[in-house]
Design a protein around this nucleic acid. Structure first.
Lengths: 331, 331
DNA sequence: ACATTTAGTGTAAACGATTACATTTTTGTT
DNA sequence: AACAAAAATGTAATCGTTTACACTAAATGT
């Protein structure tokens, strides 16, 4: 593996000159530059990024910390971040916290030790407490979940509006006995609940149930069974993320109920299966590609200028109305 | 950010001693060790991994190169690899090639430049050609797809057996006009096809169609439509990966056909949706957790001992029979 | 009592790049 | 032709570790 010294020697120049050529400095004579470049080519030299990082005290790596890579939303985000990062010559270290604050802390430390240039992440709820400590250190951008202190760059969905729109859609399609399943691991669930409530209020309706539960398929399944078995069964179920939607869907099928005739179902996030099941699921699609790209861009901007005032970008979801919430037929 | 020098100074020792304590060397007096440790605690010192990598010429990072992170199989693999790696104190750089040889080459270079200790990856078909060049360099483990030269560690599914089992299952359940959709981006599709053929031969049947197509939902959809519109419609469709399964399922629904009465459908890999659709999909589940862990372990072993002779681990898939291939009822 | 081993520690040279500063070469001016 | 200014290049320190080697002091053997 040739080093910059080998190149310098072979090209008959000093390492400084090679470095300058590499950096694209314009203080190198064209002739020399060519000579160095062809030597680099010849020796198949590639600069050692570790050495470069050590010397320049910065790296071309960013960390991506997601709470569950199995959630298709985060999978999509990962792709977008990765694409955006690699376009800028950055690599991505992926970390998966499973909503576990201990793992989160571990990974933030790891990323710190790896000298990443910045971090994009979806924090656990417990993170807000640590935010102040963390802030001093590495540039970071929060995605998906608001943190208390507005002292950070964030890319969020307008969750209240999305919850409102999805709920309104149900109401306007004739559903009145609404139950909601909300993830309890983040503010996202809370905000979507806020929109849910607001919509109900605006139509002078009362929620039949509001459950805050862990964002897992199993939990969605169990809670939905419970709701379905109550005397006054809901005629529509609102779920605040796709894992809960999957669980709810399973439960409904398990009880041999018809969607949407017996009970409608709506949720969040485009998934492979949402369009495949019968009926397909009505949902709010998040602009994952845009979220990932925006977060990456914000991060680069902050790396560039750590002093700039924090910015929050709020994106809109898109209602995709499908069979699972088709207008209610009078019975 | 304190460095080892700061610790050394504060503890009244040399940096060498601090380093020895850090490395757990037993050539340090207990009293000194304690003093150093408490100084480290006090200053909240954490070793700089970049400097460590540079000096020791190795790093605690591994690269994971997958061909499509949106494929739930690879998502699952990622998780497993990540967990296994972090348990050993390694971080994971994630790369996504989209089956694009150019991206693959780019990422392999990036990983090389990042001085990763090793790479786990699912190569594109074009990779085999580059294998010999690549071999000299970084330790790596191939997953999911066999490469020509057996000169590499590999963790694979017994794809021929899996294809055979899945096909036999269809035949034994009374299906006779079988069509197969196989991914054309890897050897995996070919091998599953081999099992498919073998099973048909053993039962003296002829395949109705064998299509090798890009592993995308859209392609699966279009090809299935084409198959369904032929005069002699298949009574069962075999798909070699979950994206093709999804596409096929969509197409079947679009033509308003009943699964499995009009046409059965089987595929590979556990997905969220496979169990949710009606009827749920029969499939061969791969032991993703085990694949990921095994690959990571093999990689660590190879990093440890680069000279050892390559090893191929072949794991068995598990048939999960569900409604989409229920025994055929006589018409 | 002296030589020899052993344990504990320090010194300083790496690892491979970047970069401030010094030096040399080129160019331009008179 | 001489000098100044500008351009090109080189020298060497530096980033934060690890580690071969050197050294000291104490322990052991004779």
């Amino acid at each position: 593996m040739p080093s910059i010294k080998d190149v310098a020697r072979a090209a008959g120049v000093s390492t400084a000159t090679v470095s300058r050529v590499l950096a694209g400095s314009d203080h190198v004579k064209e002739e020399t530059r060519q000579r160095v470049l062809s030597t680099i080519e010849l020796l198949n030299y590639r600069p050692n990024l570790v050495a470069r990082s050590l010397r320049s005290q910065k790296s071309a790596r960013i960390g991506l910390v997601v709470s569950d890579i199995r959630n298709p939303f985060f999978t999509a985000i990962s792709r977008a971040v990765e694409d955006a990062a690699y376009e800028q010559g950055y690599s991505v270290l992926l970390c998966n916290t499973d909503e576990d604050p201990a793992k989160e802390e571990l990974y933030l430390n790891v990323l710190h030790d790896e000298s990443v240039a910045g971090i994009i992440f979806s924090p656990t709820q417990q993170f807000s407490a640590r935010l102040s400590t963390f802030k001093s250190d590495i540039p970071f951008v929060i995605i998906d979940r608001a943190v208390n202190a507005a002292q950070a760059d964030m890319v969020l969905l307008d969750n209240v509006a999305a919850g409102y729109e999805l709920t309104t859609h149900l109401i306007q399609n004739g559903y009145t006995r609404l139950a909601g399943l909300f993830g309890n691991a983040s503010t996202t669930g809370k905000e979507r609940n806020k929109g849910f409530r607001k919509a109900l209020e605006d139509y002078q309706l009362k929620p039949l149930a509001e459950q805050f539960i862990p964002p897992r398929i199993q939990q969605g399944y169990e809670t939905t069974l419970m709701l379905l078995d109550q005397p006054n069964r809901p005629d529509a179920i609102f779920t605040s993320n796709s894992l809960l939607t999957a669980g709810a869907f399973q439960a409904i099928r398990y009880r041999n109920l018809k969607v949407p005739d017996d009970v409608a179902l709506v949720g969040f996030d485009e998934t492979t299966w949402g369009a495949l099941v019968d009926p397909p699921i009505t949902l709010i699609a998040q602009p994952t590609e845009e979220i990932g790209r925006t977060a990456t861009e914000l991060l680069f901007q902050r790396i560039e200028d750590p002093g700039r005032s924090p910015r929050t970008v709020i994106l809109k979801g898109k209602l995709i109305a499908r069979g699972s919430s088709a207008p209610r037929v009078n019975k």
